[in-house]
Amino acid sequence: MSDETSEEKPKPVALSRDARRVLGVLVEKAKTTPDNYPLTMSGLISGSNQKSNRSPQLQLNEDDVLQALDELKRVGAAREVQGSGRATKYRHAAYEWFDVDSPGASVMTELLLRGPQTLGEIRTRASRMYPLEDLKVVQGVVDSLIEKDLVEPLTPPGRGQTFAHKLYPPEERQYLEARLEKQAAAAESSTASAPAKASLDAVDALIARLETVNERIDALEKRIEELES
């Protein structure tokens, strides 16, 4: 047996909402505005809060982004580098962390920045970072990401099938499932019976409750960090 030991490569893990947004921004800007990459703190804040190509809309401040960067650096998904002068800049390590090529990184980035999408939506949006010729190509990329346990289908096969990344923490994954159930119920609401409408109301109540719980968790985590600092 060899005495040599090799350093184990960090594996993707669930990330907080803010960390997913910051990682998505780092990969996106590296591809779309390479002259401004690596990113400064100002660039990261602006990219995280921009109105286009983002869902949900966020309003992150410097403390939020710093906490997200600490999380990403801790798991090996981002790095701090020295820029020109005294400026501190940040770069992603997504290719190594995800173990993907450029098409895979582009698809993962869109899922991080916009949430669950269909193959058509992925193709339209990810093509701004890497050309995806048709839906067959997109399906191949998505299939490879599914094999790596990075992506999963959220709805049954067929037209409009929706895919999502697998970096959601458990509480957010539960919210995602409830939201999809609501959307499916809403699509049939025009002909829904009274029991079906009652079911839709129950889903709304569950989503509202999960949103409240997530807000309380976020507030508690920030309060703990303030007390520990």
Rank of each mutant, 00 (worst) to 15 (best):
M1L: 14
D3I: 12
T5K: 14
E7H: 10
E7F: 10
V13C: 02
S16Y: 04
S16D: 01
D18H: 11
V27Q: 01
E28Q: 14
A30I: 04
T32Q: 08
T33Q: 10
P34S: 06
N36W: 09
Y37K: 10
P38S: 10
L44R: 03
I45G: 01
G47A: 05
G47K: 00
K51T: 15
S52L: 13
R54P: 04
P56R: 06
N61F: 08
D64I: 00
V65K: 01
V65Q: 08
Q67N: 11
A68H: 05
K73M: 15
R74Y: 14
R74P: 05
R74W: 14
R74D: 15
A77F: 10
V81H: 06
R86F: 10
R86T: 12
A87F: 09
A87R: 13
T88F: 04
Y95D: 08
E96V: 09
E96T: 08
F98D: 02
S106R: 05
M108K: 10
G115R: 02
G120W: 11
E121R: 11
R123A: 08
L132Y: 10
D134F: 08
L135P: 04
L135S: 09
V137N: 04
G140L: 03
V141R: 04
V142H: 00
D143G: 03
E152C: 02
F163H: 02
F163G: 07
A164N: 08
K166H: 07
R173V: 04
Q174L: 15
E177P: 04
R179F: 07
A184K: 14
A185P: 00
T191C: 07
T191L: 14
S193F: 07
K197A: 06
D204F: 14
A208D: 15
T212I: 02
V213T: 11
E215S: 15
A219E: 10
L220W: 09
E221N: 13
K222D: 08
E225F: 09
